[in-house]
Design a protein around this nucleic acid. Structure first.
Lengths: 126, 126
DNA sequence: CAGCATCCTACGCGATACTG
DNA sequence: CAGTATCGCGTAGGATGCTG
C-alpha cells in the first residue's frame, strides 16, 4: 500500500490516518478464515455450530476469534437468543454482503484458473 | 469450503481432489502479502527492489517467499537479466491480471466502507 | 542487486478444561 | 450450545550474514 492504493482522494487532509486504517482493515479481511466464513454465511443465517460445520477445518478458537473481529468491523451481525441452551445466530450485514460479492469473484477466479495453476505448478516443481 | 464452494461442477469425477487443490490455491492467494504484491504490480513491470519499496512494510524474506509462490502458481512472471549487478523483473501474467481485478474490488470495498467500519469499531469497543 | 541460508523470537493456533 | 481462559507447541517471520 506504499503507493496509497486505498486513498485515491483529492484532499490530503489526514490521508495518512485513513490509509493506515485502510491497511488495518485490509489485514483483517485478507485472511483465509475470514473470507471463508463470509463465503459460508452467504445469504443464510447460521448458528455457531452451523458455521463450524460449514467452514471445513476451522477450529473452535479461530471461529470465535474471527467472528468477533468480523462483528467488530460490522460485517456480521450477532443475535443472541436468551434461551437455554443459548442460541446465537450470525448473518452478514450490508457491508458484509457487499464484500461477499468480491469473495465470490475470488472463488470464481480460483475455479477458472484451477487447471492453469496446476499446470504451472508441475512445470515449476520440475 | 465444506460445502464445495469451488466445484460447482456437474460430474463428480474426482471432485474431491479438485476441491482440495482449490482450497490450497485459495490459502496461497488469500493472504495479505500476496494480495498487496499483486496490487502493487498492477500493469507495471517492477524489479525486486521496486516491489520492496512499493509494498509498504514487507520484509525482504516475505517478498522473496511470496514472489516464489506467485511464480510457482503462474501469477507472476520472473525475468532475469544476466547483467552485473543482476536485474530481475516481475510482471503479472494473464491469470495474475485477472486476479488483480478482484483485488481491485477488494480495495474499492475497503474505501467504500471505511467510514462505516470505523464507526462500527468505536461502537463495538465501547 | 537479488536471493539463499541460518538463527531466534514472538505469536498463531490447536487442545483442553471451565462457566452460564 | 456458545464462549472464555490457559497452556504449549510449531511455525511465521524478522534480523543478519554470505554468494554470484
Amino acid at each position: 500500500m506504499g503507493t496509497k492504493q486505498f486513498s485515491g482522494l483529492p484532499e490530503d487532509a489526514d490521508l495518512t490516518r485513513a490509509d493506515s486504517l485502510a491497511r488495518e482493515i485490509f489485514s483483517d479481511v485478507a485472511n483465509k478464515w475470514a473470507l471463508l466464513i463470509i463465503e459460508c454465511l452467504g445469504e443464510r443465517t447460521l448458528r455457531f455450530s452451523g458455521l463450524r460445520d460449514g467452514v471445513e477445518g476451522i477450529s473452535h478458537k479461530m471461529l470465535t476469534q474471527n467472528l468477533r473481529m468480523l462483528e467488530r468491523n460490522g460485517l456480521v451481525e450477532r443475535t443472541v437468543h436468551p434461551t437455554v441452551p443459548p442460541r446465537v445466530e450470525y448473518t452478514l450485514t450490508e457491508p458484509g454482503r457487499a464484500l461477499r460479492v468480491t469473495i465470490d469473484g475470488l472463488c470464481g477466479w480460483t475455479r477458472r484458473y484451477l487447471g492453469d495453476i496446476e499446470a504451472s505448478r508441475s512445470r515449476f516443481d520440475a
